[in-house]
Simulated scan of single mutants.
Amino acid sequence: MSRRRRSTEDNGGIAFLDVISCGFGAIILLLMITENSAPVTLESTESPRDEPIAELQETLFEIRGETEIVNRDLNARREQLSAYQQRIARLEREMSNIRGEFETSDETADQMQQEQSQLAIAKQSLTEEMQRLLGQSFTREENVIGGIPVDSEYIIFIIDTSGSMFYNAWPRVLSMVDEILNVYPEVQGIQVMNDMGDYMFPAYRGQWIPDTPARRQAIISTLRNWAPFSNSSPVEGITRAISAFYQPGQKVSIYSFGDDFQQGGSITRVIETVDRINADQNDGSRLVRIHAVGFPVLFDLDPRFHESVYRFATLMRELAERNGGSFVGLNSYQAN
């Protein structure tokens, strides 16, 4: 009985040891498999690289700098091109004028001669005051300048100071004023106004400028840079000059210089206004003689303004004819 019991107990202990040994063996086998196999990557992400980004940024900055330099060079080239184009346009206009002068020189001479003969009028007789100043034996070598009589005692210049005149015809304006002053050896008084009736010398508002060599020089010197606002209508200057300066017994001549008369003005209304203020109440004779000189500036600048040039010529020709004066249309607005 005791032997069997002991044998059974021994067999149970051996079976338990076998189970434990198998368990340890399994664990060791699992450890060996785990160490020998490579890890499996389930998901991968690329880490940002700073160096390529920095290089790209540096390249971008360089490109921007080069772009600014190119833009500056391009703007400079555009400005230079614009200057060249303006110069070419100016040279083309000058070439066109020269060609026109050569091609139409004979025709122009005939037209000028015909125009002067048509516009010339009877010369005013010398007053006692002019005879005293000039002397009984004085004989004027030039009684007209461009077809305009120049034998008055007082002269008033009404000058269009608009941009088209000042920036294009001003040297010719200076030349014409200087020529007219030179033809008069001596007068009782001079006045200079723009077409709006503004005085060149405000200190002489409503007064005559004394005729002295210094005053004449001051007129030419001041006129070089004198450009007050102008509406390109001579009516204001003419009417103000007549109202402010006419005195009975004085021989006054107005010289109106201009290049256009804008569409807004009425030619008929201007003529009627001047007729009303410049007519003597007794016999209807004119108080002031009105001369006009037309400068063909807008013929070259823009064909759209040709109508304004024709309107100015029509107006001033009619005013001159009605007021004992002459109208002369120049063939060129550039100084000789």
Rank of each mutant, 00 (worst) to 15 (best):
N194H: 04
Q86I: 03
Q136A: 10
I180Q: 07
G258L: 03
R304N: 11
Q136D: 13
N143W: 02
Q113R: 13
H291V: 03
I148K: 01
P185G: 07
T41F: 00
T67K: 12
Q250V: 00
F166A: 14
S2M: 02
L315N: 09
Y84M: 15
E62L: 05
N336R: 11
S82T: 11
L91G: 14
S96N: 14
E153D: 08
T67Y: 04
G147V: 03
F305E: 11
M193L: 10
Q113S: 13
P185Y: 00
R205H: 05
N323V: 02
S253L: 02
Y255T: 12
E318R: 14
R78Q: 11
P185T: 06
F327E: 06
L126G: 06
A54G: 06
V144Y: 05
T268L: 06
L31P: 01
E103Q: 15
L119D: 04
D283N: 15
G329Q: 09
A109Q: 12
G147P: 04
T59H: 04
S326D: 04
F16H: 13
R72D: 12
Y246T: 10
S125Q: 12
Q57P: 00
E103P: 02
M196K: 11
D275F: 00
Y154K: 12
F138I: 11
S243Q: 13
S7P: 00
R205N: 10
T45Q: 10
F157I: 08
I28V: 04
Y167D: 15
V235M: 13
C22P: 00
V70R: 10
Y204F: 07
R172K: 15
N75L: 06
F157W: 04
M200A: 09
W226N: 14
M165H: 02
N194M: 05
Q124N: 13
E46T: 11
F138R: 15
I14R: 15
F312A: 15
L74D: 10
V252H: 02
E92W: 00
R311A: 10
Q188P: 00
D50S: 11
L42N: 11
Y255C: 12
P185M: 04
M165S: 05
P185Q: 09
G100M: 05
V297C: 04
L56G: 08
A279P: 01
S164T: 05
D195G: 08
G189P: 02
G329T: 05
S96D: 11
S243E: 13
V19T: 12
A292C: 09
V70P: 02
A122V: 07
T212D: 07
V19L: 07
S117K: 09
I27H: 03
A292L: 03
P248H: 03
Y310K: 15
D302S: 09
Y154T: 08
I267S: 05
M112A: 15
N143A: 08
V309N: 03
P210G: 13
F261H: 12
S308D: 09
D259R: 04
I220H: 10
I27V: 06
T239N: 14
V293Q: 02
S47Y: 00
A120V: 06
M165K: 03
V293N: 04
G249P: 03
D151A: 07
T45C: 05
V270M: 09
Q116A: 12
A214C: 03
N194I: 01
G294I: 01
